[in-house]
């Protein structure tokens, strides 16, 4: 029952509908149903927020430590360096998401360049 289990055009779409659409919209619909009846800072809601946050954080960690595609060609230390620097820049420079992303990308790209992972493109 994995994503590639059934070789038919509709299977991946069904997989996305059940594991994607149903698994997200059920919470949105419950939110409308309960609208205003649950206290925002009740213990249950805080616990729910903690679990959801840790889960997404685990995804962040995996994307950096076990990336796919072209990012997998870079060294782990470079990715950790770029991520940590980007996060530090975000924290210390006005909590700006843009500053954090740009810092991390600059470190990643210059690191790849220094490691000889690619050459500057030849003049066109």
């Amino acid at each position: 029952m994995t994503f590639d289990a059934i070789n038919a055009w509709w299977w991946p779409l069904l997989f996305i509908l059940v594991a994607g659409w149903l698994a997200t919209d059920v919470w949105r619909f419950l939110g409308v149903y309960f609208g205003g009846r649950v206290a925002e800072n009740s213990d249950a809601i805080v616990l729910v927020r903690c679990v959801a946050t840790a889960l997404v954080a685990a995804v962040i960690g995996n994307l950096v430590v076990f990336p796919s595609g072209a990012l997998a060609e870079t060294s782990l230390w470079l990715r950790l360096d770029a991520t940590a620097s980007g996060f530090a820049a975000y924290l210390f420079i006005r909590r700006s998401i843009v500053v954090g992303i740009v810092t991390a990308e600059l470190i990643l790209i210059s690191g790849m360049f220094l490691a000889g992972d690619f050459n500057l493109p030849a003049p066109f």
């Binding site: 594991a19 997200t24 059920v26 919470w27 949105r28 649950v38 729910v48 927020r49 959801a52 889960l55």
Partner: peptide
């Protein structure tokens, strides 16, 4: 589906 549902519970308090 279970992992996605767990990651999306946060949507409920937002909609609420």
């Amino acid at each position: 589906a279970f992992a996605v549902a767990l990651s999306s519970i946060r949507l409920m308090p937002m909609v609420v």
